[in-house]
């Protein structure tokens, strides 16, 4: 039961707080009644300003994107009734636009590659480096340094490897016209090439996250497993991995979100075209390029939003659930 007085005095977020407290145990009520009215105002401002900023600059634009997706607005002048096209953008996306399903497929490939290849490699490195070996710190630094590079730089560094006159083809001796492998140009190969470059960065990130988790594992568990005669592999699979369940979930979700946010590398390499189409690059190329197909681009943005909300909600319910108690 919300306290009417609190509602009258203090703004919403705090008043609800007071309400919750009022219905809580006596001891708590006593504790919070120490808050002066000024304290409540201060608390409100503490939360209110960042909340307002987030609503104005993230959630309102999100809502606007949803609304724009029902128009054919091109960004010039006002939006009139003539601009409203209903579900036409979505219909064209699903049935007429040749690049949409490939983009969905590429996002999916990105996801699967990260989940089944890059993240496990990161976990593997973490397990190796978790032991007391000489130079563990040094190896960690090497594997981790790509994470601190700007993706603009990462993209360029890998272009130098993949170009037809770049390192990989030259080292393989594939320089003649007929056998050269066109890593970034071949539309059925380039997504894999980019995934390798992206993994170069992702592996280090996952490794660090996992290492931190491993450090918190009770060492007696491992000893117990060793005494039971389990091999290192067995002890990892049977003992450590299950204990790490919370962080495993975090890693899966981080990986999923990273895959949906994939943009920079593909955009730097060829603007996300010719086999590197992703939902994010389709949005950018259609709506903030010279093309300015804002309505159409927004409909792709809504698709991406809906897909993204699935892991975000899963993540939050998981992490917040454990955080709140």
């Amino acid at each position: 039961m919300p306290d009417p007085q609190a509602i009258g005095l203090a703004p919403a977020s705090v008043s609800t707080g007071a309400g919750a407290i009022a219905s809580g145990p006596r001891k708590r009520k006593h504790r919070y009644s120490i808050l002066t009215r000024r304290d409540k105002v201060v608390l409100f401002l503490m939360v209110g300003i960042p909340t307002a900023l987030t609503i104005i600059f993230i959630w309102l634009p999100t809502l606007a994107s949803i609304l724009l997706s029902f128009t054919n607005y091109q960004g010039i002048g006002g939006i009139t009734a003539a601009n409203i096209v209903g579900l036409k953008n979505y219909q064209f996306l699903a049935t007429g636009y040749v690049l949409f399903w490939p983009a969905v497929a590429h996002n999916l490939m990105w996801l699967l590659f990260f989940v089944f290849i890059a993240s496990p490699i990161g976990i593997f490195f973490a397990v190796l480096l978790d032991r007391e070996i000489r130079g563990s710190r040094f190896y960690q630094n090497i594997f981790y340094f790509p994470v601190v590079l700007s993706l603009a730089v990462v993209g360029f560094i890998w272009e130098l490897q993949y170009a037809p006159d770049g390192f990989i083809d030259s080292a393989l001796g594939l320089t003649s016209q007929n056998n050269a492998i066109d890593w970034l140009g071949n539309p059925s190969l380039n997504i894999w090439a980019v995934l390798v470059a992206a993994s170069w960065r992702h592996v280090g990130y996952i490794m660090v996250l996992y290492l931190a988790g491993l450090k918190s594992v009770d060492p007696t568990l491992r000893e117990a497993a060793a005494i039971d005669g389990a091999s290192e592999f067995q002890s990892f699979v049977r003992v450590i991995f299950p204990v790490m369940a919370p962080i495993n979930i975090v890693i899966v979700v981080v990986t999923v979100i990273e895959s949906l946010r994939a943009f920079d590398l593909a955009f730097i390499i060829n603007q996300g075209t010719n086999g590197l189409e992703l939902l994010s690059t389709l949005i950018t190329n259609n709506s903030i390029s010279e093309a300015s197909l804002i309505g159409f681009g927004s409909s792709i943005a809504v698709v991406l939003l809906v897909i993204s909300l699935v892991p975000i909600v899963l993540y939050l319910s998981r992490v917040m659930g454990s955080a709140s108690e």
């Binding site: 690049l99 010719n274 690059t281 259609n286 300015s292």
Partner: peptide, 19 residues
């Protein structure tokens, strides 16, 4: 039209042909 000739428009179609 700029919206026709863009990276995810005509440029992409020509790339599809060339492949």
């Amino acid at each position: 039209r700029p919206d026709f000739a863009g990276a995810n428009g005509m440029q992409a179609f020509l790339q599809k042909f060339l492949a």
